[in-house]
């Protein structure tokens, strides 16, 4: 199967799974912004995405997308290290025109993944997972809240400055990962040329900034609301 045993095939899978995850991020960021304007609307989305069959199915597809992206990242990185050879250069310079993010995608991805673990224990585990195991109310900072009350979760976690700082670091790593990942995915699909290369890079920067700014805006908004 050429998708598995050719380098371009493996890269194609990496690129398509990446684009899929980018689309998910777009959805997630839009959903979060809703919380700023109406907590009822946000909770309605949380309810909709609770332990319903379609939400669980969607989560499984999403998890598969993540797994494919991660497994392929590890596989490709190991292959690339082998291809580099055992001897390394004594002098290493990052040439002008090479983005820092492009050479550190694996590390950036690892950082994003670690914070994803934190995010899952804070939100998903107490929301969808709790509901799946039959608990409709969960304990959150001493209070008992509904597993659908996403706004309560946001208000609780984002009132803690350390959590807020950690999330902002997460968004920064994500920003770097996306600025390269976005245009790189399109290059791998082959949808690129000398003119579009510059355009995709600009679009990638704008897109990554919008998504990360939306996430950061919600985080900071709820922190400020908690202290004011």
């Amino acid at each position: 199967m050429w998708l598995l045993n050719s380098s371009i095939g493996r890269k194609l899978i990496m690129s398509l799974s990446g684009i899929f995850l980018i689309l998910f991020l777009l959805f997630h960021a839009s959903m979060n912004v809703a919380a700023v304007f109406s907590e009822e609307a946000y909770n309605a989305i949380c309810g909709f995405l609770g332990a319903n069959w379609y939400a669980v199915a969607g989560t499984l597809v999403l998890a598969a997308g993540f797994m494919i992206h991660i497994v392929y990242a590890i596989w490709l990185t190991l292959q690339n290290r082998r291809a580099r050879g055992r001897k390394r250069y004594a002098v290493n310079v990052r040439p002008k025109g090479v983005e820092w993010a492009s050479q550190n995608m694996f590390v950036l991805g690892l950082i994003v993944l670690c914070f994803l673990g934190l995010h899952f224990t804070q939100f998903w585990y107490k929301m969808m997972f709790a509901e799946l195991t039959g608990h409709h109310e969960v304990e959150l900072g001493g209070a008992i809240v509904s597993a659908h009350d996403g706004a309560a979760f946001i208000r609780y976690y984002f009132s803690n400055i350390i959590v807020v700082a950690l999330y902002l670091v997460w968004y920064a790593a994500l920003w770097f990962h996306l600025t390269h990942g976005f245009w790189s995915a399109l290059q791998t699909v082959g949808w690129n040329n000398t003119v579009w290369l510059k355009r995709w890079q600009v679009i990638a920067n704008i897109f990554a900034t919008l998504i990360c700014a939306a996430f950061a805006f919600v985080t900071v908004f709820f922190y400020l609301e908690s202290i004011l």
Binding site: K11, L76, N80, R82, G97, V98, S102, Q103, M105, T188
Partner: peptide, 13 residues
């Protein structure tokens, strides 16, 4: 055994 391209652009530079 050559590696998989990750579009860092070092080559063209």
């Amino acid at each position: 055994g050559f590696g998989n391209c990750t579009n860092t652009r070092s080559c063209e530079v």
